[in-house]
């Protein structure tokens, strides 16, 4: 098993693992960001260059550094490899440059974009971008196109990650769209106006790292941070039926796959689940989804401020003496057998 050291942390991985996968195995802040790589899509990655890292030593046998920065998503590890991500000023400098390049032809229309709040590019530019732009020329713009009656394509926002192309090939098995044109004139399109209508094609919305592909059944219905994401499932003949419901009151505003670690969905869902099941009654609600406390989506879910219980050794001792469990008097959630109170759940 090859051993690889990333930012000073060593881990053992299976042979053939990429640097990015090894970093994800370690987890935490040292994981390079990825805009085009999607672990569930074969062939994806290598294009956006945000995951470039420095290989300080190629392997135990060859401790020389690699001459250029490499894309961590497509470079396999070797035994004894030493990688620098956050610890390399060169990598951080380059990443800043890549973010600048990605934003050159991005409209930065986050205030009117449905993706805002769950946008990979937004997160990336907050983490690595500049405060201002040095680009003074006109940005490329496109008319919005309806590709099918449920999906809208707004090429102006696209960063050419190619994920939707791989999704159509591998998940939907039927591709009618692709990349047309070359260079900065390249665009996603169907050439002759065509509808994306195969069974799993709705997943292109989930894999899109920006707001270029959006769900027409939920466009402009609500900002994501006003919605409460709930895990839910239904018996579906086409897919696993396991989805995330985005709820406002008793209304299901939109249905997506369960986006988990690194913005990737756990399972791809079918178009019926995504577009046609917009009643709460269609679903078995499992409970609220966990949201990172740093995410803007969690912002509006704190209904009130609660006092934090600080449990000290002294408290525990007192409770043990009183015969109570170590859990204390905190109200118990549904997972723990208590009453389900949505407001309390989401704030928890």
């Amino acid at each position: 098993m090859p051993k690889v050291t990333i930012d000073g942390q060593t881990t053992e991985v299976a042979p053939g693992t990429t640097i990015l996968a090894a970093a994800r195995q370690i987890g935490g802040a040292l994981v390079p960001p990825a805009m085009c790589y999607y672990s569930k899509l074969k062939g994806s990655g290598g294009k956006c260059r945000t995951c470039l890292v420095k290989v300080a030593a190629q392997s135990a046998a060859n401790p020389n550094p690699m001459p250029k920065l490499v894309a961590s998503c497509s470079t396999p590890v070797a035994d004894g490899m030493v990688v620098a991500n956050l610890t390399s000023p060169e990598v951080l400098e380059t990443r800043k440059a890549i973010v600048e390049f990605l934003l050159i032809n991005h409209p930065l229309d986050c205030p009117v974009c449905d993706q805002a709040g769950e946008c990979d590019l937004q997160n990336l530019s907050y983490a690595h971008g500049l405060q201002r732009t040095r680009y003074e020329f006109e940005r490329r713009t496109f008319e919005k196109i309806d590709i099918g009656d449920r999906i809208q394509l707004h090429m102006t926002r696209c960063i050419m990650c190619f994920r939707c192309v791989y999704t159509a090939d591998q998940v939907a098995k039927h591709r009618v769209h692709g990349v047309l044109g070359r260079g900065d004139a390249a665009e996603i399109g169907t050439y002759i106006q065509n509808a994306l209508d195969s069974d799993f094609i709705g997943n292109v919305i989930d894999v899109c790292p920006v707001g270029a592909l959006t769900d027409k059944t939920a466009r402009f219905a609500s900002r994501v941070w006003f919605l409460k994401p709930m895990d839910a499932h239904r018996a579906c003949t086409k897919c696993s039926g396991k989805v995330a419901l985005w709820v406002k009151g008793n209304e299901v505003i939109r249905v997506t796959g369960r986006r988990g670690a690194y913005g990737e969905v756990e399972e791809f869902i079918c178009n019926e689940c995504r577009f046609d099941r917009k009643e709460l009654g269609d679903w078995v609600v499992e409970g609220p989804r966990r949201i990172e406390s740093t995410s803007v989506i969690s912002a509006n879910h704190y209904t009130d401020l609660k006092q934090l219980h600080i449990v000290t050794q002294k408290h525990l001792e007192a409770r043990r003496l009183a015969g109570a469990g170590p859990e204390g008097s905190r109200p118990r959630g549904p997972h723990e057998g208590g009453q389900a109170d949505p407001a309390a759940l989401i704030s928890g």
């Binding site: 290598g46 294009k47 956006c48 260059r49 390049f101 990605l102 070359r182 900065d184």
Partner: peptide, 11 residues
Amino acid sequence: ESCGQCSPCRE
């Protein structure tokens, strides 16, 4: 002549 695949060259 840039193919448009990777961002530094495309943009």
